[in-house]
C-alpha cells in the first residue's frame, strides 16, 4: 500500500490542491473569447478530502476538472499543488501526483486489462525505459484494490461497463496519485455498477486517504460520498462547504430550477434529495 501514502499530505493549514480565481473561456470561430466557461472560481481541497462538483450541464464542471488536472491552462488565475503552480510543472510531473478517471475510455487497440493498468505507470518511466517488476507489482496491487485482479489477462474491450470503469480506476491508481479527479465516472452505468464504483471510491478515500474530486449529476451519490460540495452555476461558485450545509432544497432549486425535498435518510446514513418537479415559474 506504500505507493498510495505520502507523509507530507496532512501538513496542517495548507490545502493540497488549490485553485485561485480561475477564468477560462473557449474561443469562437473568429478567435474572440466567448463568455467565460469559468468566471473566477476558487477552491481549496485539503489532503484526504472528498469534494463533489455539482452543477447543471454547461456549468463548467468538466472545464474545472481539466484545469485542476493541468491538461488545460486557465486564461487567468492558477492551480497549485502543494503551493507549486501546475503551470510550471511538466505533464509527466503532474501525472505522477494527479490522476483522472473520465466518463468512458475507448482504446483503439485490443489491450489487455493488465496493459491498461500498466499504462498508469507511464509518468514514472523514462522515455526509453520499460516497466520493471516494481511497476508490475504496483499495477497488480491496483488491480487487487479495485477487485479486478481476476480480469488481468482479459481483453479490456470484452469487459462490462462496471468492470471497465474499475479497470480505469485501477489504471489511475497505478499512477500512485495523491489526487484522483473523476468526471462523471458512473454516468453510463446501471444502479448496481454505480453502487459498486461508489463503494470502491469510498474505500480508497477512507482506507488510503486518496484525495478525490468527483463531478457528477447524481446528487445522492455525491451526498453519500463527498465531505464537501462545490456548486457551480454559469461558471461561478454558487456555494462551497460541507455537504450537509450546502446540499439544501434552496440550493437544488437555485442550481437546477427543480423543487426538491432534502431529508436525512437513516438507512443510507446521509441526506437524500428527492426531486418533486420542475419550477412552475
Amino acid at each position: 500500500m506504500a505507493f498510495l501514502l505520502r507523509a507530507d499530505w496532512h501538513s496542517p493549514g495548507s490545502a493540497l490542491l488549490r485553485a485561485a480565481d480561475l477564468h477560462y473561456g473557449y474561443r469562437d470561430a473568429a478567435g474572440r473569447e466567448r463568455a467565460f466557461t469559468l468566471d473566477g472560481v476558487s477552491l481549496e481541497i485539503p489532503g484526504g478530502g472528498f469534494v463533489g462538483l455539482l452543477g447543471p450541464n454547461g456549468s463548467g464542471k468538466t472545464t474545472l476538472l481539466k484545469l485542476l488536472s493541468g491538461t488545460v491552462s486557465p486564461q487567468r488565475g492558477a492551480v497549485t499543488l502543494d503551493s507549486q503552480p501546475l503551470a510550471g510543472m511538466s505533464r509527466r510531473a503532474i501525472a505522477r501526483r494527479i490522476a483522472v478517471v473520465p466518463q468512458e475510455t475507448h482504446p483503439t487497440f485490443d489491450f489487455t486489462v493488465l496493459d491498461m493498468v500498466l499504462m498508469g505507470r507511464h509518468p514514472h518511466l523514462g522515455v526509453l525505459t520499460l516497466e520493471g517488476p516494481a511497476d508490475v507489482s504496483i499495477a497488480e496491487e491496483a488491480l487487487a484494490a479495485t477487485g479486478t485482479a481476476h480480469l488481468a489477462g482479459r481483453a479490456y474491450m470484452t469487459l462490462s461497463g462496471g468492470e471497465k470503469q474499475r479497470v480505469i480506476i485501477a489504471s489511475a491508481l497505478a499512477q500512485s496519485p495523491d489526487v484522483l479527479l473523476l468526471d462523471e465516472p458512473t454516468a453510463s452505468l446501471d444502479l448496481g455498477y454505480q453502487m459498486e464504483i461508489a463503494t470502491l471510491l469510498r474505500r480508497l478515500n477512507r482506507e488510503r486517504q486518496v484525495t478525490q474530486v468527483l463531478a457528477t449529476h447524481d446528487l445522492n451519490l455525491a451526498a453519500g460520498l463527498c465531505d464537501h460540495l462545490l456548486l457551480l452555476r454559469g461558471g461561478r461558485v454558487l456555494a462551497y462547504g460541507p455537504t450537509a450545509d450546502v446540499l439544501t432544497a434552496a440550493n437544488v432549486q437555485a442550481l437546477y430550477g427543480v423543487r426538491a425535498e432534502v431529508t436525512f435518510h437513516a438507512g443510507a446514513g446521509h441526506v437524500m434529495v428527492v426531486p418533486l418537479g420542475a419550477n412552475a415559474e
Binding site: T71, A95, A99, H106, P107, T108, F111, M119, H122, Q175
Partner: peptide
C-alpha cells in the same frame, strides 16, 4: 502512442505531452 490510442485527454492525464 499506447496512450494516444486511448484518446488525447486520457493520454494527457497520464503524463503525455
Amino acid at each position: 502512442l499506447n496512450l494516444l490510442s486511448l484518446g488525447p485527454d486520457a493520454a494527457a492525464a497520464r503524463g503525455v505531452d
